[in-house]
Write a protein that binds this DNA or RNA. Structure first.
Lengths: 146, 146
DNA sequence: CTAACTGCAAACAGTTTGCAGAACT
DNA sequence: AGTTCTGCAAACTGTTTGCAGTTAG
């Protein structure tokens, strides 16, 4: 999903294109594949625009999340992290490995795990809306030489 | 893990057995398999003891968590939930299904998913320390009749 | 022009902490 | 007695909200 179509989506929602919104989206796209918390978004946004407040970021992110443009998750540190959805039409869900030493976050996708979840849901009579698999450990770098 | 051995563990740590600690542990054991947040622990504790404060519960829970006696996780509602570890020696990890409508939490365990995670870790050079799989959806009751 | 948006500061919710008194051993 | 623990209230942190002024369309 590129900036243009996100802005189009915003307009379609009867909302306005503001400098702040553009900047936030730019920052998220530039960091596609990363996972940013408020501070980080704030910091990076200031490169493009002097004064963007936390409130504005939260408000915009809420909209983006509700429209499936970004995905939010809560880290061990109780902060929320945001990540832009790379998906085209085929929504390719992915999960995360967190390195507890250096903080690196690695994405992965495993079809079999996704399928097993569907199986569990069937057995339990559960209708899956979403899921989140987080693995914590040490990445290659940290567990070898440090 | 029963109340007796938990209390023994506390003593071994050079700590004292207080009425509040006993009550908290009793409550957690009575609700083995459930997942309680602060309010719930507080409420259930008052059945046994008039005046237990939130601070005391947090402080004790921190100790219990650090000693692997209970497990904590953060719900979508940003509250922390606690659950006593049922494990004997063979630590049987389990994961959770959350009903977004009624709030019910169902546990499950799937050996294949655990194995696939190990496989992913191998491929990524990652050393797994812990993991968490949370599935959100509607439980049987809520998705049928309501 | 006017409805939506923003920054600010105050409000919130969950959790943590300092302190003086209470309780375990 | 001496140390650890507790309740209380105040402090903290991340997030949300009300408001008056600003801006996009």
């Amino acid at each position: 999903m590129d900036e243009k179509s996100i802005l189009a989506r915003i307009k379609a929602g009867g909302l306005k294109i503001t400098r702040q919104r553009e900047v936030i989206i730019t920052v998220l796209i530039e960091n596609k594949g990363n996972h940013l918390n408020l501070e980080q978004i704030l910091e990076k946004s200031h490169i493009y625009h002097d004064n963007i407040s936390a409130a504005t970021i939260y408000r915009n992110i809420t909209f983006l999340e509700q429209n499936g443009i970004i995905k939010k998750f809560t880290g061990h540190d109780k902060k929320s992290y945001y990540e832009i959805e790379a998906r085209g039409e085929a929504h390719k869900h992915h999960d995360h490995l967190f390195c507890v030493k250096c903080g690196e976050i690695i994405e992965f996708y495993n079809q079999q795990i996704e399928k097993l979840q569907q199986k569990i849901a069937r057995e339990t009579g559960f209708k899956i809306l979403d899921h989140k698999l987080e693995i914590y450990g040490e990445c290659r770098k940290c567990s070898s030489g440090e």
